[in-house]
């Protein structure tokens, strides 16, 4: 006897089984259960037929292969980019060291020069102090955010 409608639980179960049936991942017991649905419920039969057609269409498609040279040079490109990344890190660290040293020498010379007015020295002192405080504040904030950020593993 044919039944007409599935209840919600049966519908959910069938939805999962129809996928497994299409992809050949049904176990023997599930296969029997699935066949029962298809035999007894016209809506299941229709859905099964339609999903089979979707699968047939996608089965005919494949992603286009790139030229063979792509694979020949793939690792070399990755290697070069890793190496360049290291280069940038070294360059940045070197630049920071040189700039800090230059700034230090500049400040020593400036504060040792009796011809420079006191208010200019005070202004430069406040400027440098402000930059240091801001840098420390930003660095501390980033450190604490990183420690407690639940999405830190997510690449942004």
């Amino acid at each position: 006897m044919k039944q007409s409608e599935l209840n919600n639980d049966q519908r959910e179960r069938f939805n999962l089984m129809v996928m497994a049936a299409i992809d050949g991942e049904l176990g023997p017991d599930e296969k029997k259960e699935f066949e029962h649905y298809v035999r007894n419920y016209p809506e299941c039969r229709d859905e099964w037929e339609q999903f089979k057609k979707v699968k047939e269409v996608t089965k005919q498609m494949k992603l286009k292969s790139p030229a063979d040279e792509t694979w020949d040079s793939y690792w070399l490109n990755v290697y070069n980019r890793i190496e360049r990344g290291l280069g940038w890190i070294f360059l940045s660290i070197g630049t920071i060291i040189v700039l800090v040293y230059a700034a230090y020498q500049f400040l020593i010379a400036l504060f040792g020069d009796a011809d420079v007015p006191v208010f200019v020295k005070a202004g430069i002192f406040l400027l440098v102090a402000g930059v240091i405080v801001l840098l420390i504040s930003v660095a501390r904030e980033r450190f604490f955010v990183r420690k407690s950020d639940p999405y830190k593993e997510v690449e942004r």
């Binding site: 939805n15 999962l16 996928m19 497994a20 992809d23 339609q50 999903f51 979707v54 699968k55 269409v57």
Partner: peptide
């Protein structure tokens, strides 16, 4: 995985109705 696949294929089926 199965439920996501069902929803995805259902959406694809609706868009490809003309060709099925």
């Amino acid at each position: 995985v199965m439920s996501r696949l069902f929803n995805a294929r259902k959406a694809l089926k609706a868009k490809l109705e003309k060709y099925l």
